[in-house]
Nucleic acid binder design. Structure first.
Lengths: 306, 306
DNA sequence: GAGTATTTTCAAATAATATTTGAAAGTTAT
DNA sequence: ATAACTTTCAAATATTATTTGAAAATACTC
């Protein structure tokens, strides 16, 4: 894939259903457009169009690739604009990226509290579990689970010992019973989380130096942590979620921990500053505030870990 | 921006802090790498690196563009892989994309109901307001607000007359009063929604053939409809949201409609099938089910529109 | 501090790639 | 059936990318 120009030609051809029209729009000859498309197809290894001598029709592969490449082009445009525009680093605006479940169910009220203490502060929130979104915007602070990509970011561990726990609603447990060990998960409906087409369906546990990985299945998968938790609370199955996410539900009895003698995998929570030079006094203040609150929450969550 | 190769060189140079090392990795001469980088900088219109004769250091612009272009490259790779891999069109699995607020707060229980009626059905949910996510996966069904990009998709209007309404919590109204007209919004805290760095802060209204657009401000912005609604319910300000999203809150009295004599902009809800050839009996069944449920909800929402 | 190694960039030469041109074959509309 | 339009082929031409050789500057080692 050498040329973005080839992608442009592909997009125009897809939009118009005609190579000649695409060529005209881009001020090329049809032969040039034809050659560009052929190059692209060879590089990708798939046909992008079904052709007749008079028109083009997208293949399934073509359609899939069209969607991805459209977004890629858009990202490059946005990147140029962002670079040209400079960072609107106007004081008083903080941009935060938060995980979906923890962000909307735990952090929103905290941030309301922080804003009440700091009038004049404007917050911009990006709520998503997708790591891709992590890069898209210039962020002042990011809360993320797990290991972050190696990018020289400044990371402050908030809950380094946080782990996933098995849990289900009282209703689900009444109907299906509580598994005596994680092995029994194979006979139960497990609510899986998915990220970038990767389904997390290998749930890991340890006990007394003993390791167990269970391949689980279920009739629901979502790419959003909040959705998975809602399913669990609604009694649709068993979830394997961050203890921080479900601390409130556990305390309220909406969810009950299962197999408490087995320890789930560790998912540390990190607070990340994207750039040392971005650490204004307000960012520092918010960082300390969130750190304190998360530490207290982690202690509450730990109380359920035994 | 002609060449993806130039982007590759940029990435390697950023990773290594050295043009020569980047060149070696890509089996080019330093002069070629240098020329490529220069081309890219000229096309973008910004310096990407600060240079000494012996090393490179990213500029702020370079850093911003690096993040965007990294993701763009990743998208192209994913697009190729997806095109090569074909669509895992195994029966019994339906993949749905839903708006964040409506999806998690309204549709999840409906889908639970649908799955109870149709045992053996596996659902994969993608919850996001970002149109980018719409394209990333092969989707069986998509619920989306507003006008969709022209892409030859099969769209079924679900709530074509759905509109945005002004609303706030009883608490907020008690503290700040209810605006007599949308013009008074300028003096109130407005909870804005943001998508791809575009903040929706021009709220539009009509009444008796009369149009009004109000530039609003507020101390909270999120890229997630659910977060905006939560702010409103928590009494942090005024929201301008889809009537469908807040129908339940209005009915429960958590939110109160403001300026009911003014009509907000129309945001039709569409149910989209990504490809005619994808319409299996189960997709058809789900489509009809969702269509019925949404129609009923729209009728409930309409009751609040007067 | 001096010498050496390495870097980045310039300009000209060379190589590689993209586009045009002209023509052929096929489809679609009238 | 005919005309108009399309896509693609192959050769010629144009454009762009890379290499080569050299210069200037920095960083490292002694």
């Amino acid at each position: 894939m050498k040329a973005l120009r080839d992608l442009e030609i592909f997009h125009q051809a897809a939009d118009t259903g005609s190579l000649s029209e695409a060529a005209r729009r881009l001020e090329l000859t049809p032969a040039a457009a034809s050659a560009a498309l052929k190059r692209l197809e060879e590089e990708l290894g798939v046909p992008l169009f079904l052709r007749s001598t008079r028109s083009l029709r997208l293949t399934d592969e073509g359609r899939v690739f069209l969607e991805h490449s459209r977004q890629a082009m858009q990202l490059l445009i946005e990147g140029q604009e962002a670079a040209l525009g400079g960072s609107a680093d106007s004081r008083g605006v903080l941009q935060l990226s938060l995980p979906s479940d923890l962000g909307r169910n735990v952090l929103l009220p905290w941030l309301d509290e922080f804003q009440a203490i700091n009038p004049g502060l404007q917050l911009r929130l990006l709520l998503s579990d997708h790591l891709a979104d992590f890069y898209r915007q210039p962020l002042d602070l990011t809360l993320r689970y797990g290991k972050l990509p190696d990018s020289g970011l400044v990371a402050l561990p908030i809950a380094p010992a946080n782990q996933r726990i098995l849990c289900a609603s009282p209703g689900y447990i009444r109907r299906h019973g509580a598994p005596a060990s994680p092995l029994e998960l194979t006979g139960l409906n497990c609510l899986c989380y998915m990220l970038s087409e990767y389904v997390h369906d290998r749930w890991r546990f340890t006990r007394d130096g003993q390791e167990m990985t269970v391949q689980v299945t279920g009739d629901r998968i979502a790419d959003d942590g909040d959705a998975v938790r809602r399913w669990a609370v609604a009694g649709e199955g068993i979830a394997y979620k961050s203890a921080l996410d479900v601390a409130g539900d556990l305390a309220a009895g909406r969810l009950i921990r299962l197999c408490p003698d087995w320890r789930g995998e560790t998912v540390p929570l990190n607070l990340v500053c994207s750039d040392r030079r971005r650490i204004s006094p307000m960012v520092q203040k918010l960082r300390e505030f969130l750190s304190r609150q998360c530490t207290a929450l982690a202690a509450t969550a730990a109380a359920h870990l035994g």
